[in-house]
Structure formats: structure tokens, C-alpha cells
């Protein structure tokens, strides 16, 4: 647990934790509002967003790619809403139509342009590359106090930490509004709370989290981070405050155990190479969800437990 850990494992674990928490926080509300699948739609349209950003700017740079992905997410949300209202189509189908079409357009544009020599490919966007985000110049724990060494930390770490903090702050600021608008939209409107604006803001926050996190953990694993920790937390408690705290605990644990299992797990089976850390994070979060589904104190619907006992 010395130099090597700080060099190769500390930053990926931290980035994993921040990504997981940034996704889990909006995920809590998406699950309660039955909009969990919007995270699926957002994560699929990240690819076309990045491709378009690359075409427009011609460079692989972080900021344009993030802007492109965020723009694609907003376009997708608007299209979904338009199809829902104009076509009178249920939300799930509207999402399915929009994100598959946009994803196909992304793949098409990607194939049309000569991007084979640059560092965007579909697999990378789908799977992420947490392992490559290492702090190469670190020489041990004391490097944490060395400004020159700190400057060479991967950009993703600072970006993810800022996004995570911003989402957390926004959640605290709008806490009361979010809570009321999530559980009783009509009541929220009667109180003068801009419920639909809160709903849209929540989706935007989810989009920002997904876009910031996809680079590290991949766009599909993001879905697991949005849904599994909050869903597991939902089965642990009836109070929203406690649910959010539980979801942060589950998200953190998924990130840490996921990374450790991916990096060191294969060695226990005397294999030499590590497996995908992002995939392992999703797997661990799924294990937590299964455990809470089996043993969570609040796993049943109200009234269902009595029914089960009677049978």
C-alpha cells in the first residue's frame, strides 16, 4: 500500500467514487419519479454528441466533447418530450425511438469520418477506461502534499470532483423543492414551486453527471451507477434523507470494491491481468442491489409482507 498504490490505484478509485456518487444523487430522484430509464437514454446519446463535437472542432479535447455530449443530452430530452406530447406516445417508447436513432446517427457519422487514427471509438465510449487514469508522477503518500506533483494529477479527477460537488450543492439548495415535487407534483404546483422546471433541472443534472462520468467508466456502466445504488438504498429505508445517504454509501462501496476486485481479484485466482474496473463496479453495485432485494428491511410494498406470510 505504498508508492504503487498511490500511483496506479488512488486516482482511479477516487474518480470511480466521485462518478458513482455524482450519478447516484440524481438517480435517487429519478427512481422515485419513475424516470430511471432517462439515464439509459442520456448515456446512449453521449456517443453522437462526442462525434459531432469532434467533427465541429476537429480536436479531441475535453471541453468540446463534454459540451457536445451535454448538448446531445438536451436535444434528446427535448425530442423525447416532443414525441411524447405530439404523438401521444408513452415515455419508454419515446425514449427508445430517440436514443436508438441518435445512437445510429452517431455510429454512422463516426464511420463516415476518418476517426480511426484518433482516440474515439465506440468501445471506448461504451466501456470507459478507468485503469488508464493513473497519477504517474506520484512517489508515495507524501506526494499529496507536493504542489508540483499534485499538478500532474489526471484532469478527470478534478473535473469529476467538481461535478460531484456541484450536484451535491444543487441537491442541498433545492432539497425541499425537489422532495415535494418528486412526491406530489400537484401539491408542489399549488405551493408555487416550479415543478416542471425542477423536473427538467433534475434531468440536466443527470446529463451533466453522465457526461462527466462516461469518460472514466463508460456510458453503459453509468446506467448501473444511476440506478443500482439508489434502488438498493430505497429498499433500506423509508426516509428520503436516509435513502440519499445509503445511496452514497452503496455508490462508494461499489466503486472501491469494484476497483479492488478488478485490479487484484484476478491475482487471487493466479491470473496475471486485471479485468475492466468499470464493468466490475457495475457488477458489485448489482450484487448490493440483489442483497437488498433479498434482505433489505423495506424491500416489500406496503401490505405485501402480510400477504406473503399468509401464503
Amino acid at each position: 500500500m505504498g508508492t504503487e498504490f498511490v500511483q496506479f490505484s488512488l486516482t482511479p478509485i477516487l474518480i470511480g467514487i466521485f462518478s458513482a456518487i455524482a450519478c447516484a444523487l440524481p438517480g435517487n430522484f429519478l427512481i422515485l419519479r419513475r424516470q430511471a430509464m432517462i439515464s439509459d437514454a442520456i448515456s446512449h446519446v453521449v456517443l453522437p454528441g462526442i462525434v459531432v463535437a469532434f467533427l465541429l472542432t476537429g480536436v479531441i479535447a475535453t471541453i468540446p466533447m463534454l459540451l457536445g455530449a451535454a448538448g446531445a443530452a438536451v436535444v434528446a430530452v427535448i425530442l423525447i418530450e416532443a414525441i411524447k406530447r405530439l404523438g401521444n406516445i408513452e415515455p419508454g417508447a419515446a425514449m427508445g425511438v430517440v436514443f436508438t436513432s441518435m445512437f445510429a446517427a452517431g455510429v454512422l457519422v463516426l464511420e463516415q469520418t476518418d476517426t480511426s487514427n484518433v482516440h474515439i471509438d465506440v468501445q471506448h465510449a461504451l466501456m470507459g477506461n478507468l485503469e488508464s487514469l493513473i497519477w504517474f508522477r506520484a512517489e508515495g503518500w507524501q506526494s499529496l502534499l507536493d504542489p508540483a506533483k499534485l499538478a500532474s494529477l489526471p484532469d478527470e479527477l478534478a473535473r469529476m470532483a467538481i461535478v460531484c460537488a456541484m450536484i451535491f450543492a444543487a441537491m442541498l439548495v433545492f432539497w425541499r423543492w425537489l422532495k415535494i415535487a418528486t412526491f406530489d407534483e400537484g401539491f408542489a404546483q399549488a405551493l408555487g414551486i416550479p415543478a416542471s422546471a425542477i423536473g427538467f433541472g433534475l434531468v440536466i443534472a443527470a446529463a451533466i453527471a453522465a457526461v462527466a462520468a462516461f469518460d472514466a467508466v463508460g456510458s453503459i456502466v453509468v446506467i448501473a451507477m444511476f440506478i443500482c445504488p439508489p434502488a438498493a438504498a430505497r429498499l433500506m429505508t423509508n426516509r428520503l434523507e436516509h435513502q440519499v445517504i445509503w445511496s452514497i454509501i452503496f455508490a462508494t462501496a461499489s466503486a472501491i470494491f469494484g476497483y479492488v476486485f478488478a485490479g487484484y481479484g484476478p491475482m487471487w485466482f493466479s491470473a496475471r491481468n486485471a479485468v475492466s474496473a468499470a464493468g466490475m463496479m457495475a457488477t458489485v453495485s448489482g450484487v448490493f442491489l440483489v442483497l437488498t432485494c433479498l434482505f433489505g428491511p423495506h424491500r416489500s410494498r406496503v401490505g405485501m409482507k402480510a400477504q406473503d406470510d399468509a401464503v
Binding site: I31, V221, R234, G296
Partner: peptide, 27 residues
């Protein structure tokens, strides 16, 4: 069996299975 809504179950299965799939692909 649980009080989770359908969309959460769908999303969880989607994300987790894909994650397991990626782990296996790297293996």
C-alpha cells in the same frame, strides 16, 4: 417481490449485465 418500480428493475438489469459482460470480455 420488491417495491422497486419496473423502470428501475429494467435499468438495473441493463447496466449490471452489461457491466458483467464487459468484465468477461476483458477476461
Amino acid at each position: 417481490r420488491t417495491r422497486l418500480a419496473e423502470d428501475a428493475a429494467i435499468g438495473a438489469v441493463l447496466g449490471v449485465f452489461f457491466g458483467i459482460g464487459i468484465v468477461l470480455l476483458t477476461v
